[in-house]
């Protein structure tokens, strides 16, 4: 129990949370608080909002710890997915309130400013040494960028289109097909 950094047992901590041990949540926070805040901040891009979401995520993890099933996946993945989805919900619902309706592809496809030559440099230093790397590698750079802009930056289809200069319809199709190819590759 002396070295928690290398062998932190996320599943055991969730189990203790499920039993009502506050200390377990504190240990989890000490271990992953910075990483969770980093992931959430990257998505919501607002420090105060990011801390609110990590606060909510911790309470969510605490309340739902008993529902975590180690047979279905890793505890660390589950913990991060709770925080990520809170962040995604927060920005999607916020943007729906203050922004134009992003669901109208025509508006973007007919806008010539999006027809620029595509920037296709790598947008991310993305290699993590996991098996998924090989599958991402097999995608064209611009498609890989779309996937990572969505997953890491939390960008919507329209924001990715704006960011990369690709038409909205193309971005949507690229992401769909990339997901299909990634799944085949990982099968």
């Amino acid at each position: 129990m002396t070295d928690v950094t290398h062998e932190f047992d996320h599943a055991a901590v969730l189990e203790r949370c499920a039993r009502g041990e506050h200390d377990a949540l504190h240990q989890l926070y000490q271990q992953e608080g910075g990483a969770l805040l980093g992931v959430v901040f990257r998505i919501v891009k607002d420090r105060g909002m990011a801390e609110d979401i990590v606060h909510d995520a911790c309470l969510n993890i605490w309340q739902r710890a008993a529902s975590f099933d180690p047979a279905k996946g890793s505890a660390r993945t589950w913990i991060f997915s709770v925080a990520r989805h809170l962040a995604l919900n927060a920005i999607r619902y916020r943007d729906r309130e203050i922004n134009v309706d992003h669901s109208d592809p025509a508006q973007f496809e007919h806008d010539e400013t999006f027809q620029h030559a595509l920037r296709i440099e790598e947008a991310f230093d993305w290699q993590t040494g996991q098996r998924m790397d090989t599958c991402l590698q097999a995608l064209e750079t611009e498609r890989r960028n779309c996937i990572l802009h969505a997953y890491v930056d939390g960008l919507s289809h329209a924001e990715i289109a704006e960011h990369t200069g690709a038409p909205l319809g193309t971005v949507k199709a690229w992401i769909k097909r990339s997901l299909q190819r990634l799944r085949e590759c990982m099968a």
């Binding site: 992931v39 309470l59 996946g73 660390r76 991060f80 230093d125 993305w126 040494g129 997953y151 890491v152």
Partner: peptide
């Protein structure tokens, strides 16, 4: 999908939480 993409959460740089985030979580708890 969560499992497949999980490694890429590491692309976001960690951010040190402010000193009052944990006390706030603890109070809510």
């Amino acid at each position: 999908w969560e499992e497949r993409f999980a490694p890429y959460t590491a692309l976001a740089t960690p951010v040190a939480p402010s000193a009052f985030l944990w006390p706030r979580i603890q109070r809510s708890l």
